[in-house]
Amino acid sequence: MKIKKNRIILDEIDWEILRILEENAKISYTDIGRKLGISHSTAYDRIRKLEKYGVIEKYTIIVNEEKLGAKYITAIMTIYTDPKESENVARKLTESDKILEVSTSLSEELQIIAKVIAENQEKLHSFIAESVAPLPGVLRIRTSIITKRFKEEKLPIPHLNEKFISEK
């Protein structure tokens, strides 16, 4: 790992370490070293450096909600707004614990896209009718309830490496 003009540049081994940790964050330094043909102490040093400079922000877990019997519905709201109020609407939405994601989108009209969760359809509707529609600047709302999820991943590390980091 190098730092050049305030930008962190990773070498191939660093990228491989990230890819391995993304698959299994509990893997030992010895196993990482074995996979990459480096010593466990080199693996340790590199990982500490990636942590120190914030490339690795944290290690987390993925909870299988189905095993816990968690029941809720997820929906995607497209909120058409008055352009003057869209920033305020988006900020207000972020304050709710029922909203998981808020983004703005450019199309013919300014839209806010928000992912929302609720215990059931009735509670979803109440939340939208009582807490979203009354926000000043909301012109109309389209909501799609997600019925089946085929894939949900974060941006995979190989893509970060090869496609989405622009060389300046």
Partner: peptide, 14 residues
């Protein structure tokens, strides 16, 4: 306005 009646056509569609 927070007590107004908001017209929807279906669940979540204002």
């Amino acid at each position: 306005r927070e007590k107004a009646f908001y017209f929807f056509t279906s669940i979540g569609n204002y």
